[in-house]
Each structure stands twice: as C-alpha cells, then as structure tokens.
Design a protein around this nucleic acid. Structure first.
Ligand SMILES: [Mn+2]
Ligand SMILES: [Mn+2]
Ligand SMILES: [Zn+2]
Ligand SMILES: [Zn+2]
Lengths: 147, 147
DNA sequence: CATGTATTGAAAATGATTATCACTATCACA
DNA sequence: TGTGATAGTGATAATCATTTTCAATACATG
C-alpha cells in the first residue's frame, strides 16, 4: 500500500552520517534538514537556495557532496526528470518507488515488492536475471483532480 | 511477453518522417539508419561517431535534432542512465519497457500492459490518477550468467 | 597547544546540450 | 526552367549542470 511521506528524519540521518565517520558540520546539518523535511523532490540548486537562507556561507559544492553521501546511504533517492537533470527526495526505509503529482508535486511511495510477480514472470520468459529496477509513476493527486 | 528487437525499421521511419512533412535529407537518413539498426541504447555522441563513418560532414547538432524528432514520434525511446545522461534506443510499436543486460547491453522489451494491475491497485489505494510511468529493469541476459 | 586529517567553498574546468546564424538544399509555382 | 520562400545544416558560441582543484579552515586527538 502507498505510504505518506514521514516527517523530520533529520536526527536519524545525522546519526547515520556520524556512524559512518562523517563529521556533523554546520553545512551538512543544514543540507540534511532541508532535504529531510521536504516532501517534494528537489534539485541540488533548489536545496542550495533553501539551505542558504539559514546558512548563507553554504557552497553549492557542499550540497552536491552531501546529497551524494545521503544517496549512497539510502537516505535520499534520485528522481529522474524528463529533461535529464535529476532531483532528490527523502527515501523511506527500504527500496521504494515513487508516484508524483504532476501539478503540485506531492509525492507518494509504494513498495518495491509490488513489482515482484511482474519481475518473476519476466525472468521466466526471458531468461534474464533482474538485479535492479527503476519505476516512477506520474499523475494527479486527489487534490489536483476534481472528477 | 518479452520481445526481441525487430531489425531494420529504417524504411518505415523514413516514411513516418516524410508523412510528418519532414524532408528526407542525407544527414537524417544516416542518423535514422544508425539508430534503427542498433539493438543497444546509444548516446547522441555514439550515434554521431557511428554515423560519421558513412557521412563525415554530419554535425552533432543534427544528431540531437533528429533524435528529438524520432522520440516525439515514438520511434525511439529514451533510456535513463544513472549518471544523468540519456541514451536512445529504437522503440517497438506502442509503449514498451526495457530490460537491459548490464554486461553486454543486450536489450529486451516488454509490454506496458503488464503493469496494468499494479497501477490499478495503486490508483485505488492512493486516490491518484496515474498518467505516465517510467520502468526500466537491469540485470544479466542468458548469455552473461552461467549459473 | 601541536599536528594530522576532514571539510569547506571559491574558482576554474569539464561535459552535455542548446541557441545562433550564415549558408545550402529543396520545394512550390510562375 | 528560374525564383523566391522555407526547411535544414553544421560550425561556432553560449548555456547549464556537475565535477575538480586548491588554498584556507575547522576539527579531533594526543
Ligand atoms: Mn534520468
Ligand atoms: Mn508502460
Ligand atoms: Zn497534486
Ligand atoms: Zn548480456
């Protein structure tokens, strides 16, 4: 079943970073706060612009570097955009897929397991082994369609 | 069920381009040939390099412009790469999804209808209307795994 | 405090894609 | 068959996102 975005995982993310041996610096904290507390996919530049309000010295380079670490740790996940540029969004626990409202940007996750039987079938018929998959749905959320 | 790549749709593609009012010029022909006859996803630059062998005056700009038209007509489809850059591959008739071998690049298509029941379920549970979806599977083809 | 290491951000470099523009090829039709 | 209108081309320049470099700073540890 689809999941709502969970709020404010900031503290948890900082713990994970610390457990990895990373220092909890001011610029990292602010980047983590922004992306952990937003329920929309954000480009690195958008993260930068928001984070800079609280921490004006912040560099865009640090935003890229922090997002890279968070993605490697599975705390954020990449969202593919038609134009080629990628955005990032806070990821729920485990591998999940996205359903994005094309009007308001509201985002819902649903479990990767829902794909299991489809993938099993494709493996049987093709002889391939499936290791990874990318699935993103786009549409309109309940608030953005009236019919 | 998964489909093998169909060969040499070159003539058909040229007809479609012509039917759209586009002229069948030498540079367009060579770009169409390259992408229509390859069963792997190619970057614009890769298309350029291959096409240039037959038509050295070709400009990279024209490759981008031709791929853009072919994609708009549904003749090629975009393949998302982890690094952000996109590649293109000849698309079978109708909306299809990709299964790509991570070792040899061999590519299989499977139909969008296979996703129908999953999408129905997600629509019911979420209240969203799903308009588009992006699905790509990655794994190993029969020739690239021995077990 | 002293020292080694991680982190930072400005600036430059890179790489992909797109926009410009002068030129050419092709088409419609007189 | 000319001829003007239009589509198409490719070299070049511009743009945009991302990565690299590097000197300076912050932090941890003894
Ligand atoms: Mn992508
Ligand atoms: Mn589909
Ligand atoms: Zn919405
Ligand atoms: Zn293979």
């Amino acid at each position: 079943m689809p999941l709502e975005m969970s709020p404010a995982s900031t503290e948890h993310w900082l713990e994970v970073l610390e457990a990895q041996g990373y220092r909890l610096t001011a610029p990292r904290r602010v980047v983590v706060e922004v992306i952990a507390q937003t329920d929309r996919a954000l480009s690195p530049l958008a993260v930068f612009d928001i984070a800079r309000i609280r921490y004006p010295q912040l560099g865009l380079t640090t935003v890229y570097r922090t997002l890279e670490k968070l993605e490697a740790l599975g705390l954020v996940q990449l969202v593919h955009q038609a134009n080629g540029c990628h955005t990032y969004i806070a990821a729920p626990a485990g591998h999940q897929h996205l359903l994005i409202c094309e009007y308001c940007g509201r985002t819902l996750f649903f479990g990767g397991d829902d794909l299991g039987s489809l993938i099993d079938q494709i493996e049987r018929e093709s002889g391939y082994r499936v290791h990874e998959h990318l699935l993103q749905l786009t549409g309109t959320c309940p608030g953005c369609h009236t019919d």
